[in-house]
Design a protein around this nucleic acid. Structure first.
Lengths: 122, 122
DNA sequence: TTCATAGTTCTATAATTATCGAACAAATAA
DNA sequence: TTATTTGTTCGATAATTATAGAACTATGAA
């Protein structure tokens, strides 16, 4: 129980990373991390239960988006910016710089309604 | 049955787009589109059924990643590069330029095994 | 009109995924 | 030692998603 599994840089998979980033809660976590540099898991205020948060952190870690460092009773999280930049140049910064206005916070509360298709066959 | 619904540029949502791009089949389609410019749905050789392909195209269209234009019996697809660039600068190009070596094609055939966690509590 | 082409929609199913609460585990403080 | 803090893991459930086949629709050609 000492080390956590993190994928190697050259094993990072684009689709896995995109999937990891496509969740509103995880995206918010990533953004806070980008600002804070390194922060403990629990510092992130989220509307979900502890076990759910644990699941999200695990998803991000296994995708290779962040690194988890054990320190005392807490796990300190940090973005794997260098690895991500090396393998997928520009991806992380594009995601971080993206306009976070309405959307993400909104989506985590209330998913947008499925648009009603207007047109018989399309 | 004339027009298809496409989200407006300013309604594009990052998480929705990332989710749309996180599927191996859809990612491959997007890459072909980026090369071919505009191409009919059916030109894309995929291992999935017609109805499944239709679902993927719809997902991409509703996310705002591509545009579908009706022409005769076929639907011509094209990337919404300008809209994407305007709203999320650098995102599409980062995804397109990403090393597509092993991973994506591989993942569509055989998903990578869930790594066995080694460590009691993490 | 009849047929072929291209794709959608419906229905169903299997697989993932998000979520939570309860029980557990490790490090540290009292 | 016992209790606290910080998080994980397990088991269950609900929601989403990928997939396919069958029936359907629209366009254009014979």
């Amino acid at each position: 129980m000492r080390t956590l599994v993190h994928p190697e840089r050259d094993q990072l998979q684009l689709t896995t990373i995109l999937a990891a980033l496509s969740d509103p809660i995880r995206l918010r976590l990533i953004r806070e991390l980008a600002l804070a540099g390194e922060m403990p898991c629990g510092e992130f205020a989220s509307p979900v239960a502890k076990s759910t948060m644990s699941h999200h952190v695990r998803t991000l870690r296994e995708a290779g988006v962040l690194r988890v460092r054990l320190q005392g009773t807490q796990r300190r999280l940090s973005l794997r910016s260098e690895d991500l930049d090396a393998r997928f140049p520009g991806l992380l910064s594009a995601v971080l710089q993206a306009d976070a206005s309405v959307e993400d916070s909104a989506r985590s509360i209330e998913p947008e309604p499925r648009e009603g298709e207007e047109g018989g066959m399309a």
